[in-house]
Amino acid sequence: MQLDIPFIWTAFTEIIKALPLTLIIAIAPILIGLLIGIAVAFLRMNPIKILTPIANFYVSFYRGTPVIMHIMIIYFGVPILFESTFGISLNFVPIAVFVIIALALNAGAYLSEIIRSGILSVSKGQIDAAYSIGMTTSETLRRIVLPQAFASAIPNLTNIIIGFLHATSIAFLVSVKELTGAANIVASSNLKFLEAFIAVGIIYWGITIIIELFAQLIERKITAYSNTGVARN
């Protein structure tokens, strides 16, 4: 077998067309998951009977099982559920929607932990100080707690975003035509597997590096006023 280097470029231009779909499958779950995550994080920090144990189990279960299970169970399970209870066939729903639902539930579990540790990282003194100058609870949250919590959560958030970008590759197993799916099509129609996967590898790598650069930029901006650590930057 010989490596056909020019074909890597051909495959690259063909596969990159699937980038928008990949970005949608990666970003939509994170946005939905953020809402779930905030709700779950508050449930776990301010215990409510019955609901808090459910939230705890949800986070632990989703963090303890592979993403592929979440995708498969939603992809096969939701249509059966709808058909048996409402008698509605979900054949018209694009597969990508099931993947987004599965990843959003997964994102909620991971993000709730990040939000929780971000909020816990803000010292109690900050909240006391805010109250002492007469801020209301919502002002304290909006102006004092959340900005600092966000700043300390950025490295974790970056990892999550990169993780979800990579998790979208699993969607190809339920035949969604995102980057990996497109690579597989290019590979099998030209019988050049290695070249196609090198091309798609470069695409993923490139996006990851861009995300990391963005995160560094935002982190520098947001922590410009911070007064912690061992060195002045």
């Binding site: 990579h166 699993i170 990996t180 597997f193 590898g201 993923y204 490139g206």
Partner: peptide
């Protein structure tokens, strides 16, 4: 590179 690519792609590569 390892951090930048999904494990599935690494498997295929």
């Amino acid at each position: 590179f390892i951090r930048g690519t999904p494990i599935l792609i690494q498997l295929f590569l």
